[in-house]
Amino acid sequence: MSEGRGALKLLLKNRLTLAGAAVVLALALVALAAPWLAPNPAQALGRPDMGNQFRPPGPGNWLGTDDLGRDLLSRIIYGTRISLHMGTLVILLAMAIGVPLGAIAGYAGGVADEVVMRLTDVFLGFPPLLLALAVASLLGPGLANALVAIAITWWPWYTRLVRAQVLSLRETAFVEAARSLGAGHGRIVFRHLLPNSLSPVIVQASMDVGYAILTAAALSFIGLGAQPPAPEWGLMVATGRKYFMQYWWYATFPGLAVFVTVLAFNLFGDGLRDVLDPRTRRQ
């Protein structure tokens, strides 16, 4: 208990971590309140306003308008929804694949362990973005496919994490006790081992959301993610880039949104890691 309180204190003391947490929270609120915050929700969702294209930032359109005359601020606000949605779903899917495999490998050991671990070797043998790109291009464009593509590159990390946890817990007294009381393998894994190894996984997951958002934006930038007229940030940078030298705001602001969001998640995650990893903890 005292250790937990110490960690919390540490977390609060670190201003960067705190700032990251605050921005993440703010983004979540923006996503929830998008219809009320966005000056023009209809345009955010795609309705063109021809004759009004490429208005520079100014009163009325604080971040300017895009190539179809739509208010960029509104679209970026709605884009928060897509990005947070993607970030969380990717990590959830990666966990859904990775955690059970890790538990099986750690608990069963032997051949199962060997097979699962070599499988993770294969997937981690790619540079991460490359595999996501290859998979997404072969699956075809669309947010759902991009989601699958990124999750496919990310699950092995959870497998390794959970396996290590399960290995360290397998021989502990309470597992022994459960076993001696006649609990089956399934019960031991799902009632005892997994719940006790989940906390580091959850911490890791919260740190990975930033990565997932960044990768999703990169895929959309290439045209493999969101489809028009979705207000996805990466897609907006890609379209804005075509007009970039003349209308700088179109690609600049959605890119900034990606950067700030990912930065916030990473600052928050980095602070968490410092707190939870005793080796780098302040003496």
Binding site: G46, R47, P48, M50, D67, L68, G223, P228, P229, T239, K242
Partner: peptide, 14 residues
């Protein structure tokens, strides 16, 4: 990547 087709499609959709 075809901007004209994309804009035609977006206007039609609206």
């Amino acid at each position: 990547g075809d901007e004209h087709e994309r804009k035609v499609a977006e206007l039609w959709k609206a």
